[in-house]
Design a protein around this nucleic acid. Structure first.
Lengths: 342, 342
DNA sequence: TTGTACGCGTTATCAG
DNA sequence: CTGATAACGCGTACAA
């Protein structure tokens, strides 16, 4: 007889088994499990004892099927694994998410979308695995989210890329204003040949930070053409910085749209023999651990990434609980953190 | 009337609806959905058309309830978020896992255990959410996994900490031999005042690598007392290196039990004005991106982290499919990668 | 307050 | 090859 691995395992106790042990009906056990007040104290005690004795844990599939809820959320990241793990920004957001979720009964399912093909992700989400979705790092091309929104409540981290999406819920900072603030610092300390390494051109955060950069320079009457595109990775930041130095050997100020990219920029400046901030002053963005991990602590525009994660989860949970008037857009404050690079 | 958010959404199509449209029974639709061969071609076509028309996706909860399988695995990481995201080693393992899982219908649920209290994790696991679990970064104190193993198939990344656990399935390298190899390099290039920054003392990987270090030095007749404990973080590596330099100002060789810790060590050596490899030769462990991200490329003991993730998933999947004779221990090869630091 | 009974969407076992 | 029909474990009106 070839007994399968599965069959060899002891069966999990069920509601019914608990009911038998406690000498009540399934319905009553269900009530105490779900904390209904309408049950007599003695019975609560008896049932609780039975639950402990059998080491009972409710079966999620059954509960989900009956209640039409899963008590689970998905975090969708349309990036490859490497970028997700490589940028401390994501770590902070996830930390915030879990901090909020830990106060609830919800669990988090991580879907790094490029690892499984898009449609597999979508399939998973549409199979009723989760009650709602959190989406971060949204690119212009990621229109699969549009379909998602018709299926379940969604909250974005960062304004979604679809311009027409007025109904969307999202948590963000004013990226343009924040970038303007960071760039202004370079102007304020007397730099006049200022360039920027942008974020991804297909992401609102990348686009808006460039806009802010331009606004600051225009106001100061400085040319805004020293622009090279990065992709929010350290390598991308390094490559963009090289191109920039090629075109503008006299660069004396640099605004980089993320701290991670700034670490790449710093490495290139060092290898080219430019001192920071002596020859080139550098301002980053995020205030992530990457800002202080390198040889020269980064002056940077701080955004509350961890709080933003918390807020995202909070908003989704509130929508799920049926709360009305949940705000569509939540804009968090930013500030300039002065360290040594500018 | 206060209609809840949920009710406002269009209901997902069900097997039954598909059956109606296709003019067949639920059972038949179920068969084509699950790829049964015992269905006539015409009917397959009709049903497939109906599925597309309704945009049908099977409900996981129902399927799981009926089949007693979830098609989902859990990756349990008994660490805090920061360490998980901070070490490229984990990224590589996850990458390997997902690469294997993408070939299957299984999905991955990430559980970073310290974010939700242990028992919440265990509850989740025991609620029948997953068919099996993958556990990495297992510490001596994490005995909750013992209970897990009685509930479902488990595969460890790295030999589990419980010495008595002979039944366990795991994927690992020969950490002692690998560390010996790395330390031997320092001996081979003529270093004689060699120290080490160890990994966590409550993890087999940390302990075994220290053993290997000691073996190499004993064979060479070199004292083995220049040992400081790290915790597999960059900060921990830096702190341990400081303590080591304090005690052994004449240090000329350093074996660090992970590349991430080595980046911390390198930073301290630089700040202390010691050149690498001139004054102090350094050998790391992992061959993760951290090895090449710093100013001086690290000579390191390479372990196939990504392949190990792949193997973990593969073994678990094979056990789940009922395959007999799946090997309990899978030991992957390591090799020394020579770069500039030693 | 407690129990009965039905339904949730699928799979799987039988007949036919 | 196809179709009833009984589970799967739980929530919840409804009745008692």
């Amino acid at each position: 007889m070839t007994s399968s691995v599965r069959q060899a395992r002891p069966p999990q106790p069920t509601l019914e088994m608990v009911a038998d042990v406690a000498g009540v009906s399934r319905a009553t056990v269900s009530r105490v499990v779900n904390g209904s007040t309408r049950v007599s104290p003695e019975i609560v005690v008896a049932v609780t004892a039975a639950i402990d004795e059998l080491n009972y844990v409710p079966n999620r599939a059954a509960r989900s099927l009956a209640s039409r809820q899963t008590q689970a959320l998905a975090l969708v990241v349309p990036e490859d694994m490497t970028r997700f793990f490589g940028d401390p920004y994501f770590a902070a957001v996830v930390q915030g998410l879990t901090r909020r979720l830990d106060q609830s009964d919800f669990t988090l399912n991580l879907l790094v979308a490029s690892s499984d093909p898009r449609h597999k992700t979508l399939r998973y989400l549409r199979s009723g695995n989760v009650d709602g979705a959190l989406i971060i790092s949204h690119h212009t091309g990621d229109d699969f989210v549009a379909e998602l929104e018709t299926t379940m409540p969604v909250v974005f981290g960062g304004r979604p890329a679809n311009a027409d999406n007025l109904e969307a819920y999202f948590v963000d900072v004013d990226n343009a204003a924040a970038a303007e603030l960071g760039t202004q610092r370079l102007v304020d300390i007397g730099r006049r040949r200022i360039g920027t390494v942008t974020g991804s051109a297909d992401m609102p955060a990348g686009i808006d930070r460039l806009t802010g950069f331009q606004r600051a320079l225009e106001r100061a009457g400085i040319p805004t053409d020293a622009v090279e595109h990065g992709d929010f990775t350290a390598q991308g930041g390094a490559a963009a910085t090289r191109r920039l130095l090629e075109r503008r050997p006299d660069l004396d100020g640099l605004f980089v749209a993320s701290d991670l990219m700034a670490t790449g920029a710093l490495a290139v400046l060092r290898e080219r023999g430019r001192s920071v901030p002596g020859d080139v002053a550098v301002v980053g963005f995020d205030d992530s651990p990457a800002a202080t991990s390198g040889p020269v602590p980064l002056t940077t525009v701080s955004q509350p990434s961890e709080e933003m994660g918390f807020a995202m989860a909070d908003i989704l949970l509130r929508r799920l609980s049926g709360e009305e008037n949940v705000p569509h857009r939540t804009i968090m404050p930013t500030r300039l953190v002065l360290r040594e690079s500018a």
